[in-house]
Amino acid sequence: MKPTSIMNRATPFLFLAPAGIIMIFALLYPIGYLTVASFFDWRMGTPFADAVFNGFGNYAWILNDPNFHESFMVTITFAFTVVVLEMLIGVGLALMLERPILGMSVFRTIFILPMMIAPIVVGLVWRYMYNPQFGIFNKTLKKWGFEPIPWLSSPDWALPSVIIADIWQWTPFIFILSLAALQSLPRSSLEAARIDGASEWQQIIYIKIPLMMPVLVVAALLRMIDAFKVLEVIFIMTNGGPGLSTEIMSLQIYKTAFVSWELGRAAALSNVLLAIVLVITLAMFVYTKIRDARIARAQAAAEQY
């Protein structure tokens, strides 16, 4: 074989090799390691080789741990509340503000800023604003003659406070996506509805929302995935407290591993969180596949006429 043809044949592998090697060693291997480690009784300070195999012991321990139950509920409450409220506000605003917008690119830039700055910084600013003495919320409340609210220091208020911060940060994501979806709706169906005398509300409920549905479902699922990933903002604002009132699972994983030094248990917890997120992700992937297939079928059918 001529040297050039060998090189041509090897080229694809040479091009893929660096990325492939990095991903195998720094991504796939750690995930596999995580699964193995979750079956061992392993504490920080002992090498993994000395860890004792303990089967499903870590999982059994997690299932019986009241702290895990609480953290699990906090995580689910946080994720669902955040997604529902952000969808309602974001889609509502998009429906209200749907029309040609002068300077939309400027507004859009401003709206994505909260998502771009470091989560650590977002946590910082909100912790400052929630400060009981000189935070802007309590200062304003006092000025208007209301009782100050113990935002981050009361177990009843801490979770809502954290949720408010997340809504501030992420509602623009839903808003921008649904606005884009609205503006790309087929004009003909809306025109037809208007001619038939459909009111604004009827247009929204029977035409706009159903047509936007594909984008809305994906947006909600993406937000759901991200809500399970949140860590830094809460870490900075409350560090899980008071008590366990804002201790989402990500935070519990970190604390189990690097505060309590129980690496095996932390690995098992990680796997539980990973499994939850995996289910949502696969649901999303299947949904987009079905949607694309349906669109393709509709197009094929349309071409027959």
């Binding site: 291997y29 995930i31 970190y254």
Partner: peptide, 14 residues
């Protein structure tokens, strides 16, 4: 989809 917290244990150890 992978939460960064999930990577902390294996990445730290490896």
């Amino acid at each position: 989809m992978i939460p960064p917290a999930v990577l902390t244990v294996p990445v730290f150890a490896i």
